[in-house]
Amino acid sequence: MIKYLGTPHIETDRLILEKFQLNDAQKVFDHWLSDERVADNRINAAHKTISETIERVNKIVTGYESEEFCYWAIKLKDSGELIGEIDLYDFDKVTENCEVSYSLGYEWWNRGYGTEALRAIVEFGFRQMNIHKISAAHNTDNPASGRIMSKAGMVQEGIIRDMIRNSKNQYKDCAIYGILQEEFNSKNFVLQQGTN
């Protein structure tokens, strides 16, 4: 049975994962939601106005009222800089499975932060929440995201053609990844440090 714990504070070697605050909206807008390079890998279009981002952050903050809402701001431990987001969602009470998604600001790509955050959330999902399986998907034209998933122990299970349609009305194939709790346990995963 899934043990819902909301969005607790989690620390890794270089990151702090914690709840968003209402006053984070400007940085969320500046660092990734208004950036077309990041939006190319998301379903929703880049935000054009800060008011769109304020509305979205308000919705996230309101979501924290539920123990079933798991949505973290990703911050650098040394500076407190807000660099991205990661969440667990689509919990299935029958299978005890869920999905994970994440976004990082372009300035912080290719530094191992995505891998570090994903490993922390996968570990939390299995060890604290008792999730059975965690799945994720990425556009096939974004292989870097697949490398993050692989480094977190996930394995590619297949490709779904035209899985999403982005804001530019383009269909995109997506690679599906997953990891089972028993795989996580058998690989004796420990929270990896640094940029592995």
Rank of each mutant, 00 (worst) to 15 (best):
W108C: 05
E182I: 06
R161N: 11
I86K: 02
R147Y: 05
L104N: 07
K187C: 10
A45K: 12
M149I: 05
V28F: 00
C70P: 09
Y64N: 07
C174H: 15
E18A: 13
N166F: 02
M154Y: 02
R147D: 10
L180A: 10
G125S: 09
L33W: 07
D90A: 15
A73T: 11
V38S: 01
T62S: 15
I60H: 01
H31C: 11
W72L: 15
T62Y: 08
M1L: 11
I10N: 15
R161A: 04
L17A: 15
I50P: 00
R119Q: 10
L15A: 13
R161I: 01
K133L: 12
N166G: 07
K27H: 07
E81M: 06
N166C: 02
E36T: 12
A39T: 04
Q21P: 00
Q128R: 14
E55I: 02
V155S: 09
S145V: 12
N41T: 13
I159V: 13
N188D: 10
R14P: 06
I160Q: 08
L104Q: 03
L76C: 04
E182Q: 13
Q156L: 04
H9E: 15
E183C: 02
L191T: 04
M163S: 12
F189M: 14
V190P: 00
D141I: 05
R111I: 03
M1Q: 13
T7G: 15
A120N: 08
F184M: 01
A144R: 14
V61E: 06
K48N: 10
F124I: 08
M129F: 06
F184C: 00
N196D: 09
N185G: 09
E81H: 06
T53M: 02
R42V: 02
M1K: 12
V155L: 12
I176R: 02
I179N: 06
V190W: 11
H9A: 03
M129C: 09
I83G: 02
E116Q: 10
A144S: 15
I86M: 08
N110A: 15
K77I: 07
S167Q: 10
H138Q: 01
V100E: 04
I54A: 03
H47K: 10
I121H: 06
A46I: 00
K75S: 06
M1P: 13
A25Q: 00
K172P: 00
F124N: 13
F20W: 02
Y106M: 11
T12G: 14
T140P: 02
E96S: 15
R165K: 11
V94F: 09
Y64L: 08
N185T: 09
A46N: 04
G153M: 00
N142Y: 03
G178Q: 06
L76W: 03
A73K: 03
D173E: 08
I10D: 09
A137F: 01
F189I: 01
F20K: 03
G194E: 12
N169K: 13
F69P: 07
R119E: 09
G84Q: 12
K187L: 09
I121E: 14
N44C: 09
S79N: 05
V61A: 04
G80M: 04
W72G: 14
C174A: 14
M154V: 05
F126M: 05
L5A: 14
R147L: 06
D40L: 14
A175Y: 01
Q128I: 05
C174W: 04
D35L: 15
A144H: 10
H47Q: 07
N196M: 05
I176E: 08
P8E: 10
D173C: 05
S34W: 01
N142D: 03
I54M: 03
N58V: 00
I2Y: 11
E123N: 15
